[in-house]
Design a protein around this nucleic acid. Structure first.
Lengths: 152, 152
DNA sequence: TTAGATGCAAAACTTTTGCATTGGT
DNA sequence: ACCAATGCAAAAGTTTTGCATCTAA
């Protein structure tokens, strides 16, 4: 993802907040920038620490409030790792799924969606949503891929 | 799942604990029975409340310790709902995925696995695991399915 | 008998709430 | 100027830890 895309995402997030009638504070702009640039998932503590660099007085509850609001808006998506809840900017463009690196938590999108392939389900069920993620190690983090295929 | 199957699962859980050299205490037997019978997911608090019926003196940290140990053993699987972390007995028989009812949290297995269908991924990735769940409402909980197809 | 499991109490950590102040619109 | 957002402090909730006691093997 290049800088241009990130900038778009940052402005998309700000625009989304603004369109809901929310005020664009420095902290929220900073939040938007942070998630637009992040390649992986961020914990509330990560976010707090990042924010504190620019805004030393930022409070923990403001971080939580904004994370919750942005999640409810659909701008952020939540994911529970073993270490706890983390957040990342939700892809707004189109439906797809992710490879998630278990070490650096970088995510890579792919287009294949199992719901298009799924055959008859075992019983009546009113389907609302689904999730499909693949976990493993990206080429930077995998000892198997490191030497051999990374530069192939 | 009939009573016979549940009993098998209960004994499987006890056997798994025993085979790891763990002692089979009354509390652990009770835990095993609880998860063997549960149709859906249980929060630590659910487990604590259930256990307290039989063992009024049971402590919260014992519940947490055993939930963690059983998860690490692979007997239980964890899942984060909006309300927080919950547990259920992991299906040991064979690989499959689940429909999860968003109201009663009942789960229904199905055999289709997207990993058998997936085409070439966008980049080198050392795959370790995956998750695929479908969320919605079961026939008992869905207003759409309630009248029409439930008894079909 | 004895190492492991439990209960208790307290600590650590995470997330939420109430309220006065600040700051975007 | 107005009202939403923030910072602060404290509360509420969740999970972990240390240690003496108990108990399954």
């Amino acid at each position: 993802m290049g800088d241009h895309d990130r900038q778009e995402t940052m402005q998309e997030i700000v625009a989304a907040m603004s369109s809901k009638g929310w005020r664009i504070t420095d902290q929220r702009r900073s939040l938007a920038a942070l998630f637009a640039e992040a390649k992986g998932y961020l914990s509330p503590k990560d976010v707090y620490e990042h924010m504190r660099l620019k805004y030393p007085g930022v409070s923990f509850d403001t971080v939580y409030r904004n994370l919750r609001l942005l999640s409810e808006m659909g701008v952020l998506e939540q994911f529970y790792f073993n270490e706890g809840l983390k957040f990342r900017a939700r892809c707004q463009s189109h439906h797809h799924h992710h490879l998630i690196c278990m070490k650096c938590e970088k995510t890579v999108s792919f287009e294949f969606c199992p719901m298009k392939q799924i055959p008859n389900l075992p019983e009546q069920f009113d389907i609302v949503s689904h999730r499909f993620e693949i976990f493993g190690y990206c080429s930077d983090c995998s000892p198997n891929l490191k030497e051999t295929s990374k530069n192939a």
